[in-house]
């Protein structure tokens, strides 16, 4: 089944439910990465409920669009979206995420339905996406490759090797989405190793770049539209808020890699209307 909706209310409601799932599965597991999953929620929702050419009944279709979660620790966000696309039951996801014998590894693994590639060690998605985009060019296939990167991940040298390669090869079927939530594990990106001016850096590698509000569906779709008509690889710097949707989680790096306890979860779900 394919899914394409532009209804803003429907998308907002999906995003709300996805955040609830993210919090439930991480709290149940007692660990995981809710903050960066919640900053990416609208981006993932827009991809999987509108933009990606993906048939949930034919996940191996060789002409499908590819999505790579290079920031593979944000598995809760992607799993939640995929379960909403009907790939697996929500209950199983909540109850078995990060558990032994589960289909849902802490970081994404390609043995899970709908997961294109295993990630969790930062820096690798853009290179793999470049390979996929190059492959599409070789075979004259029209599929696109989307790679979601963390902003802290921009500190990995391998990312810049890949910006250089894709720009040089003019891979205009490759789209990088940078979840610019400004936090990383130990604190703020700006205090750890600042990556700005990010747009100028990426442009200088022969990419087209747009900066948007990563929680605004209209801006997200406009960016994807521009990306599909680009003469160069296309980067979307999506300004987001880590922990978006729950007041006490927003912009606080501690929720990068920590789950809410029972009390906190109750409070958060109340805010989200869960």
């Amino acid at each position: 089944m394919k899914h394409k909706t532009e209804n803003a209310e429907e998308l907002k409601e999906l995003a709300r439910q996805i955040r609830i799932l993210i919090l439930k599965m991480t709290s149940k597991a007692g660990s995981g990465h809710p903050g960066g999953s919640m900053s990416a929620t609208e981006l993932l929702t827009a991809l999987y409920f509108n933009t990606l050419n993906l048939d949930s009944d034919n996940l191996k279709d060789e002409n499908r669009d590819r999505f790579l979660l290079s920031k593979g620790h944000c598995s809760p966000g992607l799993y939640a979206v995929l379960s909403k696309r009907g790939l697996f039951p929500e209950e199983e996801l909540i109850n078995s995420f990060r558990q032994t014998n589960s289909r849902f590894s802490g970081h994404v693994h390609r043995t899970t339905p709908g997961i294109e590639m295993s990630f969790g060690s930062l820096g690798q998605g853009l290179a793999i996406g470049s390979g996929m985009a190059l492959s599409a060019k070789l075979d004259n296939k029209s599929f696109k490759t989307f790679v979601m990167l963390g902003d802290g991940e921009m500190q990995e040298g391998m990312i810049w090797e890949s910006f250089m390669f894709a720009g040089f090869k003019k891979l205009n079927n490759l789209i990088a989405i940078i979840d610019r939530n400004k936090c990383q594990n130990d604190g703020y990106v700006a205090e750890t190793l600042e990556i700005d001016p990010l747009d100028e850096k990426i442009k200088s590698f022969n990419w087209n770049v747009i900066e948007i509000d990563g929680h605004n569906f209209e801006e997200i779709f406009e960016a994807f539209e521009q990306a599909s008509n680009s003469d160069k690889p296309f980067a979307i710097i999506a300004n987001t808020i880590k922990g978006k949707g729950v007041s006490f989680m927003e912009n606080d790096p501690q929720w990068h890699g920590k789950a809410l306890d029972e009390e906190q979860l109750k409070k958060a779900l109340k805010e989200l209307g869960g």
Binding site: E62, R66, E116, M117, Q124, G125, L126, A127, I128, G129, S130, G131, M132, A133, L134, S135, A136, D139, T145, M158, S162, F165
Partner: peptide, 10 residues
């Protein structure tokens, strides 16, 4: 990474 992306697409 590029090798892996090429291999994953056949």
């Amino acid at each position: 990474g590029e090798a892996v992306g090429l291999a994953l697409t056949g």
